[in-house]
Amino acid sequence: NRMHLLCPMNTSPHVNPHKSGHGIWEEFSHSFTPAVREVVEFAKRIPGFRDLSQHDQVSLLKAGTFEVLVVRFASLFDVKDRTVKFLGGNKYSVETLQAMGAGDFLTSMMDFSDKLMGLGLSEEEMSLFTAVVLISADRSGIENVNSVEALQETLIRHLRGLITKNHPNESAIFTKLLLRLPDLRSLNNMHSEQLLAFKVHP
C-alpha cells in the first residue's frame, strides 16, 4: 500500500518496491531538477525580472514554479487518448493511474490541460502567459509588492495586446486565459496536499 509519486515529472509511475521512501524521493528530485532550472532560466529572460530584489525573485519562483510547469507540460495530458506521458517517454492511461491511486487531482489536471490546449495559443502567446503566471504580486512573502505589481501589469498589457492582435475575432480568448490563473492556484494547492500526503506516508 505504498504511496506512488504519480507525477509525469517522474520517469514512470511505478515505484521500485526495494527502494526506501527517501530513495524514491531522491530519484524524483533528480527527475524534476532540470525542469525547475529551466523555469529559473525562463524567469531570468522576463524583462524586468532581474530588476526585482533577489528575495522577491526567489519568492516568486518558489510559489510559481509548479504552476509554470503545469502550463509548460500541459501537452503531456492527452484528454482525447485519456493518457498521461511521463518524462521517461511512456504513456499511461488514466485508468491505470487511477488504479494506482490517482484521484481528483489527475482529473483536475486533465481538465486544465484540455482547457488551455483548446485555446490553440502560439508559442509566443504561451510564453507570455507563462510569464504572467509567474509574476504575481499576491504571492506570499513578497517584500516589494509595488515593483512586482508594476511588472505584472506590464506583462498582462503585453499579453492582451498580443492576443488581440493575433485573434481579432476571438475577443474571449484573453478572458478565458485569465480564468486559467485561479485554476492554476487551485491545482497548486491540490499539489501541495499530495506532497504532504507522500511526506507523511512515503
Binding site: S29, F32, V40, E41, K44, L61, T65, H191, L195
Partner: peptide, 27 residues
C-alpha cells in the same frame, strides 16, 4: 509542511540557478 517548495528542495535549486547567473555578471 507549510512550505512545500522548501520541502521539495525547490528553494535550494532555485537559489543555485539564480546565483549562477549572478556569478557570471562582470564586476
Amino acid at each position: 509542511f507549510s512550505d512545500p517548495a522548501s520541502n521539495l528542495g525547490l528553494e535550494d535549486i532555485i537559489r543555485k540557478a539564480l546565483m549562477g547567473n549572478l556569478e557570471e555578471r562582470p564586476e
